[in-house]
Every structure is written in C-alpha cells, then in structure tokens.
Nucleic acid binder design. Structure first.
Length: 298
DNA sequence: TTGCAGGGGTCAA
DNA sequence: TTGACCCCTGCA
C-alpha cells in the first residue's frame, strides 16, 4: 500500500521516480500535446508523451482519471507540473461557458480534454518566432536542434535530452552559427530578439501585469513578432487568456462557420472579444484544433 | 528521379 | 498592399 497525500483536491502517490495523481478531469494527452500549442512533446509507442520543460524531462501517461508522471518527484509536481498542466483550472466550467452555439459545442466536443499549458515565457517567445511561415514538424525539428546545440544535457533512462537554452546563451550565438538549426531567415530574428531581451529593451516579466493590447504591443517590439505570434506567446505562456491568435486556420473556420464570407482579421478579433471575452483564448484553442483536424475551409 | 507548387507570419519597400 | 524570406511536403 503506497502512502498517499492530498494536494489541492488531488490524491497523489509517489512510487520510485513516478508521481501518480488521481482525480484528474478534462485532460486528454493527445489533444493537449498535439493541438499546436507546444513543440517539445513526443508521443511514445505506448501512447504516453515525453517532453522537456522547465529544465526537466518527464514522461506522462493517463489511465482513466489517473495521471502518471515519470522521472519526477512530489516536490516538482507541487512546484512545477501542477501549474504547467494548469491543473488548478476547472475546464468543465470553461467548456460550458464557451460552448454557446452549435459550432462551439462541436469544437469543444472534438477537442475535449485540451488543456492550455503554462509554458516558459522565454521559450514560448522563441518557439513562436520560429512558427511564422512554418509547419509544426519543422518547428519541432528546429527547436530540438537549438536545444541540442545550446542546451544542457538531461537524462531519462538511457536517453539523452536537452533543455531549451536561456537568453544569455542564445544572444551570444551568431546568426551564422545558429543557421545550422535550419531556421532559415528566422535565425536572425532569434539572435536580435535575444539581445533585445538581454539588454532589457523588452521586459517579458512585466507582461503579466499589462492589459492585452499593451502586452501585445510590447512583444511586437521584438523582431519576428507580429500580431499573431504575440497572441500565441501570451496565450501559450499562460500570461493572458483574453487573446485570440488568428492564423489562417482560425480565419478559415471563423469565415466558414460564422461569417460565410472573407473577413478581415480585425473584424474577427472584435467579434470574438465581444463573444468570448476573457475566455477567448480557450475558445480559439478548441476552434483551431477542430479546424485543423477536420480541414475546415480547405 | 527531378522539378515545381503550396504552405505559412513578418518585414521592408 | 505586395513581394521576399526558407525549407519541407506532396504530387506530377
């Protein structure tokens, strides 16, 4: 019999290097890791996922309402993973609040179990600069290459993983050197953005206290960050949830299902701000995943 | 096998 | 507003 303890409504156990969390609701690993919000989680042959985040490598698996986190400790679960997986949020309530019409009901049912990860802000900035004009498998390859080139080694079992490098390390890289990661013209953006942050020209830690538009404008001072990338950074780092990143897929699904004609991004933004308010980011995530998987508008 | 079109945000003109 | 940026994928 393993000793258990209560933590914020969850029952947790520790078995060797694995933390077992019971009572998990609204968490589907595939929907969460493959909905386009993150680039460092790999599906394993058994359906579990292995990922590097917060300078650690873990493997996660779900069986019914139980979450298994391998290569970690109860302390790390309490200090890091509880927050990273946004386990303090009631997604049933959010789904109920955003499923206010037939389209959203379908999108929510389809993406049931998506959780918005609270990812490291710095890593999210660089990841989404790389996402522009790019596709997910390629973004994953580039981030993996950057980590291998500049990150620190981590181990789980016999396999070696690499942390995402910090600001200081990346801003000391040259564009020519970084070019080996195959990021193309985005390598220049990464070096310049790293320098701007390192020199304090943009202060990411202050974004959380700003209104959405101010935070967006602050991020757009960085090279390679436009309106869509800024919104992605704010949403996927858990900084703000009242943003609605509008890429081609979201634009398509909104036009196909709501406007029934070509519509400027600004008009879509105004519509969703009114419709979803402070939950716009959650609504966007369900819609994006639904649109992409169903290939709506293609 | 080769070559070409398509995809995809931001920047600069 | 439009073309360039980069590289991978899919399909002749």
């Amino acid at each position: 019999m393993l000793a258990s303890m209560e933590f914020k409504g969850y029952k947790i156990f520790e078995k060797k290097d694995t933390v077992i969390v019971e009572g998990i609701r609204d968490f589907n690993l595939r929907h969460t890791f493959e909905c386009g919000q993150c680039f460092r989680w790999q599906r394993e042959w058994d359906g579990s996922y292995t990922g590097v985040a917060r300078e650690r490598v873990i493997n996660v698996d779900m069986q019914e309402d139980t979450l298994y986190i391998r290569n970690t400790s109860v302390e790390d679960f309490q200090n890091i993973w509880y927050n990273y997986f946004d386990l303090g949020r009631d997604y049933s309530l959010i789904k109920h609040q955003v499923a206010q019409d037939e389209v959203m009901e379908q999108a929510v049912a389809f993406g049931n179990g998506i959780r918005l990860l609270r990812q490291d802000l710095w890593e999210t900035i660089i990841s989404f600069i790389l996402s522009s004009n790019n596709r997910i498998p390629r973004i994953m390859k580039i981030i993996s290459a950057i980590s291998q080139m500049y990150g620190k080694e981590l181990h789980m079992g016999d396999t070696c993983y690499y942390t995402f490098p910090g600001t200081a390390r990346l801003c000391s890289a040259s564009v020519e050197e970084l070019d080996a990661c195959r990021g193309g013209y985005r390598c220049k953006y990464i070096v310049n953005t790293s320098r701007m942050i390192q020199e304090g020209m943009v202060l990411p830690e202050q974004l959380a206290g700003m209104p959405a538009q101010a935070a967006r404008n602050e991020l757009m001072k960085l090279e390679g960050v436009g309106p869509k990338v800024a919104d992605c950074i704010l949403l996927y780092s858990g900084t703000r949830y009242d943003v609605f990143p509008t890429d081609v897929w979201v634009k398509r699904v909104m036009e196909a299902l709501y406007f029934h004609q070509e519509t400027p991004a600004a008009e879509i933004q105004a519509y969703v701000a009114d419709k979803f308010g402070h939950l716009a980011g959650f609504a966007q995530q369900y819609l994006f995943y639904y649109a992409r998987e169903m290939r709506i508008g293609t």
